[in-house]
Nucleic acid binder design. Structure first.
Length: 201
DNA sequence: AAACCAATAT
DNA sequence: TATATTGGTT
């Protein structure tokens, strides 16, 4: 016992890795080739190679990619923040509307949106804000200035009807993408449900 | 174990 | 402010 603090501290300090021994945290740890083969999406590599099990039953005729913040110089290697453009947000709203407000959870919404590079975390963050926006709408106060993005896509009335079960009602939380989607898809004739801009909005 | 989600950080 | 990350919960 009775270790002199300066003693163990200096020993600890001496064992720290040298500067050249450190791996830069922003360095890509998987080669583009490997990432490509395993269909791992990186900001640097957006190609989708191989046929991999694509769990998404609603392939987009017009796949979009997320816009990346071009002001970030490290955008090529680091996960950049996405920009929720009105177009992207519209897909989001359509997906949430299709699922129903209470069933819309990040993973499912992400799958429905089918945007290359869009992560579950991206959607989760946006969904959190969107839910708050819906609450604000119900409270009657929407600020068209601050809520410009949300206002860019009208909130489908269905969402307002079924908003927030709060405590009562507990739907099963984990939903697969509903199989009813298949019928909706074929019923649409375009194989697209409502996810794609029909050009008349 | 994975995903959700409110709170919190950047 | 907008989006990301965290950490407890389910």
């Amino acid at each position: 016992m009775r270790d002199d603090p300066s003693n163990w501290f200096s020993r600890w300090e001496q064992q720290l890795p040298k500067q050249e021994e450190l791996i830069p945290i922003s360095q890509t740890l998987i080669t583009p080739k490997l990432a490509n083969f395993f269909n791992i999406k990186t900001p640097h590599n957006h190609t989708q190679p191989h046929q991999h099990p694509q769990p998404n039953p609603t392939p987009s005729p017009q796949p979009i990619s997320v816009e990346l913040d071009s002001s970030d110089p490290a955008r090529t290697r680091r996960r950049t923040r996405i920009i929720w453009t009105p177009q992207l947000h519209k897909r989001f709203v359509d997906a949430v509307a299709y699922l129903g407000f209470n069933n819309a959870v990040p993973k499912t919404v992400m799958q429905l949106m089918n945007i290359d590079g869009l992560t579950r975390e991206n959607v989760a963050s946006h969904l959190q804000k969107y839910r708050l926006y819906i609450k604000r709408m119900e409270s009657g106060n929407v600020d068209p200035v601050n809520d410009q993005l949300f206002a860019s896509s009208p909130v489908p009335p269905v969402l307002l009807q079924q908003s927030r079960p709060s405590s009562d009602n507990c739907f099963p939380r984990q939903h697969h993408v509903p199989n009813s989607m298949e019928s909706a898809k074929t019923a649409n004739g375009q194989g697209s449900l409502t996810l794609f801009p029909t050009g008349d909005d």
